[in-house]
């Protein structure tokens, strides 16, 4: 279970965009969080993935309270999460080939030896052809790069996936392909999902349940 308990967070302590928000994602559950841009849902997603320290409140991962944020998070907690953001170009190191990009978390955790096999499997899961894997980000389209970013998010076999507007820039077919890849992974691994976005039709089709930002903040 992923529990977000009374979180207050933001970039300005006097005016946090997230105020006293609680949300629980059950084991293997997929929850869509809907809200307009700028409402604070992306900040909440970053807190949930241990990428942003909240001002107040608690994140509890499978019964264990989060014990740090960003690089200070214990490795076992940090690697429980796979995260995909809206803009693949902002989250992909332009110097790496797609193969290196996907394998990066493995190398960072000293498991580089597994890389060739994992990258091959994941490339298939997300629909990336062999020829693309040797390219760098500027040599592929947004959709192709986002496929690589999803593969990177899955490479450590996370128990929790956080997708923040993962498909907002993409066409209908690439959107459906990426969501299918996420769902195949979840069916296989039992991972839970928090998908944050503004597209009601998409999130309602994708997730077990959706909550609106207003419902979380009204309480």
């Amino acid at each position: 279970m992923l529990e977000l308990r009374s979180l207050t967070a933001g970039y300005d302590r006097r005016d946090p965009v997230v105020r006293e928000v609680s949300l629980t994602v059950g084991p293997g559950e997929s929850v869509g969080l809907l809200g307009p841009s700028g409402c604070g849902k992306s900040t909440l997603a970053r807190v949930a993935a241990l990428l942003h320290r909240p001002d107040r409140g608690e994140v509890v991962i499978d019964g264990e309270p989060a014990r740090g944020w960003r690089h200070r998070a214990p490795r076992a907690q940090r690697t429980a999460f796979g995260v995909v953001f809206q803009q693949p170009r902002l989250s992909a190191d332009p110097r790496l080939t797609l193969t290196q990009l996907i394998a990066e978390p493995l190398r960072a955790t000293g498991r580089g030896a597994e890389a060739p096999d994992r990258v091959r499997d994941l490339a298939r899961t997300v629909g990336l052809g062999e020829d693309l894997l040797t390219r760098r980000p500027h040599e592929v389209s947004d959709g192709q790069l986002q496929r690589a970013c999803l593969a990177r998010a899955l490479v450590l076999r996370p128990r929790w996936l956080i997708c923040d507007e993962m498909t907002a820039m993409l066409d209908a077919s690439t959107t459906a392909a990426l969501v299918t890849a996420v769902e195949d992974y979840r069916a296989d691994s039992g991972a839970g999902l928090l998908a944050v976005g503004h597209d009601k039709v998409l999130l309602e089709r994708w997730c077990d349940r959706t909550v609106h930002w207003d419902e979380l903040t009204r309480a």
Partner: peptide, 18 residues
């Protein structure tokens, strides 16, 4: 046709391949 079928309010099925 495949592009329309990929929409989440239709089949939500990607066009295979790239």
């Amino acid at each position: 046709r495949g592009l329309l079928d990929a929409l989440p309010d239709r089949e939500f099925r990607p066009v295979p391949g790239m």
